[in-house]
Design a protein around this nucleic acid. Structure first.
Length: 254
DNA sequence: GTTGAGCGTT
């Protein structure tokens, strides 16, 4: 999804990709376009975004028509303050197909390398030999937290259902079974071989042991539409829910 | 609303 072309990469055959790092998460291609376009003909600008969230990942790719212009932009825009943060512009070493770009050859003088060395933090270390996507996973520590949080939300349902849809191997192996197993184990641990007597901590402290996984499970199931059957659980649940007209209003225990 | 090493989409 480029701002110039809605159909993926326009033409990388005669374009030089530049990698812009350290940009703010709110910086968009439109914000970088005028900056890079000033130093050369920008063919296209692409900013990788999260598939789930859709927000910028913190870096962008700027495609130049000529390497010389790209090189110039790298030297000029590299370290430029954008939106409050200094961006880092450098030639992209890898293409979209995980193929090394032969064109975007880094041609920087030795003197400049030294200059950049002291200007740049040594912490920036390219992957030694691993170029797989594993790095991507561990790349976002903070992002992982967000993703994890999301997994606890509603998005999780979407992924799960989708996974099952395009995962014939898991047609009925993992996923649900695993959940069941987990639940079964949980239950078994609750009142199973675990120490039942020892399981009782200070009774006077445990005032609200209402933390039961059943609540979540029921909710999840409802979403699935599998065991909707409100009729089955109706009799019992209705009684509990029907505590509204309960004559016990003096019981302010809760 | 947050975060910060890094390499990309139809």
């Amino acid at each position: 999804m480029s701002h110039f072309g809605r159909t993926g990469p326009p033409d990388i055959r005669d374009t030089y990709s530049l990698l812009v790092l350290n940009i703010t998460f709110r910086t968009s291609a439109d914000d970088l376009y005028p900056l890079f376009d000033k130093y050369g003909k920008v063919v296209d600008i692409f900013i990788p975004r999260d598939r789930r969230t859709g927000d910028s990942r913190g870096f962008a790719f700027v495609r130049y028509k000529y390497a010389e212009e790209a090189q110039k932009a790298v030297e000029k825009l590299d370290g430029r303050n954008v939106d409050g943060r200094n961006i880092m512009v450098q030639f992209a070493k890898y293409g979209p197909n995980a193929e090394p770009i032969k064109k975007g050859r880094v041609v920087e003088p030795a003197s400049r390398t030294r200059f950049k060395s002291r200007s740049r933090s040594p912490r920036r270390r390219y992957r030694d030999d691993n170029r797989g996507r594993d790095r991507r996973r561990s790349r976002s520590r903070s992002r992982d937290r967000s993703d994890r949080d999301r997994y606890h939300g509603k998005d999780r349902d979407r992924y799960r259902s989708r996974s099952r849809s395009l995962s014939p191997d898991y047609h009925r192996g993992r996923g649900r079974d695993r959940h069941d197993d987990d639940r079964a184990r949980s239950r078994s641990r609750s009142l199973g071989s675990a120490s039942p007597t020892r399981r009782s901590p200070s009774p006077k402290r445990s005032r609200s042991p209402r933390r039961s996984p059943g609540s979540r499970g029921a909710s999840s199931r409802s979403r699935d539409g599998r065991s909707a059957t409100p009729r089955s659980a109706s009799p019992r649940r209705r009684g509990a829910d029907s505590r509204s007209p309960s004559p016990r209003n003096s019981d302010a225990d809760d």
